[in-house]
Design a protein around this nucleic acid. Structure first.
Lengths: 343, 343
DNA sequence: GTGAAAGCGCTAACAA
DNA sequence: TTGTTAGCGCTTTCAC
């Protein structure tokens, strides 16, 4: 069973079945009207030869490639994965294949990929990235539809699917208020980071709506556990009392939680902690497991792919499409009913 | 600048330049011999029309698609990313594009993808997966070369690129011995998991070579922090004294480290801890940062892609290609020189 | 119900 | 040096 020299073509199939290529084509694609017997004979021949229609040839006549390109702005990473899976999921069902292009934060590389994808005549393009901040459009007047997933374009006419991060932050605050917290601090990532700012402002606004001030100014730092730990030192030193910390990411939240425990504060009895991202490994590894905001990136990827498919079919949906976040409650904010009452 | 109705074809270019398509083709591909002036005129016309050669048409005549398929056995995840990046890196340089196919641990899905890729006439296929255990070949007598990356095939003739996990485990043990540890315990993942077994046996053998016994039998459990924490309870309860723990993964190692500290044992002064995978977020989030074994998955992906490229060019390299692991030393095994001497 | 033939966009061999 | 032409494998009219 060596390597077959050459994949079977439709004329091989036609010859074996004793029909013309036109007839074979109809038989294999269920088009035209043929005798059932002929159809079967062709299918049997195709089966026997292991025939797989040459996609390039098909593309050439149909004009459709049934492929889409996915370009990541920055490098492929933790955030891209669920998006990728969602996209793959929605497209795979529609028998479309995905070209993966790793932009590496390099605009030149990105444009190179764009050219390649266009020369491959992809039916559409999905652009993603780790940073939610609106980015310049990848191109203008492109011959195929483009959907931005998680990121959005600075051109408000471009189709994008983004998470309602502000809404997520508000849900986090509402939850903390609902479990009786009133002195809520906020620790998050870099001040120049779009998501940090959006989440932070939304949290503060939501507190204000409840007539509350945050427990101290928001602490901007990095997206790391180490920063979360350091921030707790600052909170303990400078802030007054606080009974909750809303964090801009799960990593920060985990650092905060660890440092609080190390400082003798119980989570959640003394201080409740909420994270953001609902990153399984962080959220479940944490002691106790973290309550966190989930942006449903996989659903977002799926939605982006669906919008792309409908755009490919001639029904574009321009503009931003905002999708809600979901709060996943765990033990960092709620004492389990069967646990020891707080001393 | 609306959507251009139809991408320019080479005959558009030829017409605009006032030459025949054959001449245009030569001019654009730098073949044949043409007057420099003609060449330039064609190139200018192509530029003006934004001409991008139709890849499908090119494929049809040349037989090459300059695409490869990458099939993940299980779902795309943490382990696939560095592999993907490596593959992308090595292939992108050679102007090849990658079709990403998420197998989801579903053999039917996998075969569906295989068919799709073959019908797209990819030049080659890379198969990856999270589990290093050898897997059944994805197909036999395939018309294109296949390289397994990180995983290997049960057919020893199949080309695969794998990490020397046993060697990595031995390096970890050697390091612990070098920093003076003699009573080394081992905590790892599920007993039915190939990597757990390989790493574990290699560690025990290496200890034996040094004339040592492990501190208690290896503890098999899960790949989670929670298990690492529980395991420490077992070690403290049942094992005698121990001055180091070699862990089968960074997550386990982190759980172990946290639990040791909670139990009043200092890391690394009282107990040194080594992880496996060198997963940045785990290794750096840990207190203190974890010494860990790095399998260099990105390099592995690059190597797999390079082997695939040479196989595509007619020089296959059958059989397994084993690549060394690297030990990355951090503070979980070595006291920084400028730190407080142990009390 | 089936076959013949044109054409998708490009390359490459051959003619001019 | 340039143009003409025959495919590459498939789909799709249009005759038969």
């Amino acid at each position: 069973m060596g390597k077959s020299a050459r994949p079977a073509t439709i004329s091989d199939v036609a010859a074996l079945a004793g029909v013309s290529v036109g007839t074979a084509s109809k038989a294999l694609n269920g088009r035209g009207s043929l005798r059932a017997e002929t159809r079967q004979r062709v299918q049997a021949a195709a089966e026997q030869l292991g025939f797989q229609a040459n996609a390039a040839a098909r593309t050439l006549s149909s004009g459709r490639t049934y492929t889409v390109g996915m370009i990541t702005t920055d490098t492929i990473g933790r955030f891209s994965i669920p998006l990728l899976i969602g996209v793959e999921d929605a497209l795979g069902a529609g028998r479309m294949s995905v070209f993966l292009c790793d932009g590496r934060d390099d605009p030149i590389r990105e444009q190179y990929y764009l050219k390649t994808l266009l020369s491959r005549r992809v039916d559409g393009i999905i652009v993603t990235g780790r940073h939610a901040r609106p980015r310049p459009p990848i191109g203008s007047g492109l011959p195929v539809p483009v959907v931005y997933a998680f990121v959005s374009s600075t051109d408000p006419e471009d189709c994008s699917v983004v998470a309602d991060e502000a809404g997520g932050a508000r849900k986090a605050i509402d939850h903390l208020l609902a479990v009786g917290r009133r002195r809520i601090a906020h620790v998050t990532g870099p001040e120049h980071h779009h998501s940090a700012v959006v989440r932070s402002s939304a949290a503060i606004e939501q507190l204000a709506e409840a007539g509350l001030q945050p427990a101290g100014p928001p602490l901007f730092g990095e997206w790391s556990e180490a920063w979360g730990r350091r921030a707790v030192g600052m909170l303990l030193a400078t802030a007054g009392e606080f009974d909750a910390v809303f964090c801009g990411s799960d990593q920060v939240a985990r650092g905060v939680t660890d440092a609080l425990r190390a400082a003798g504060r119980r989570v959640p009895e003394d201080v409740a902690v909420v994270g953001f991202d609902n990153w399984d490994v962080m959220v479940l590894g944490c002691q106790p497991p973290l309550t966190s905001v989930d942006m449903n990136l996989e659903g977002l990827g799926r939605a982006a792919a669906d919008l792309l498919l409908t755009a490919i079919n001639g029904e574009p949906s321009p503009g931003p499409h905002v999708r809600p976040c979901r709060l996943v409650v765990r033990e960092s904010t709620t004492v389990p009913v069967d646990s020891q009452p707080a001393g």
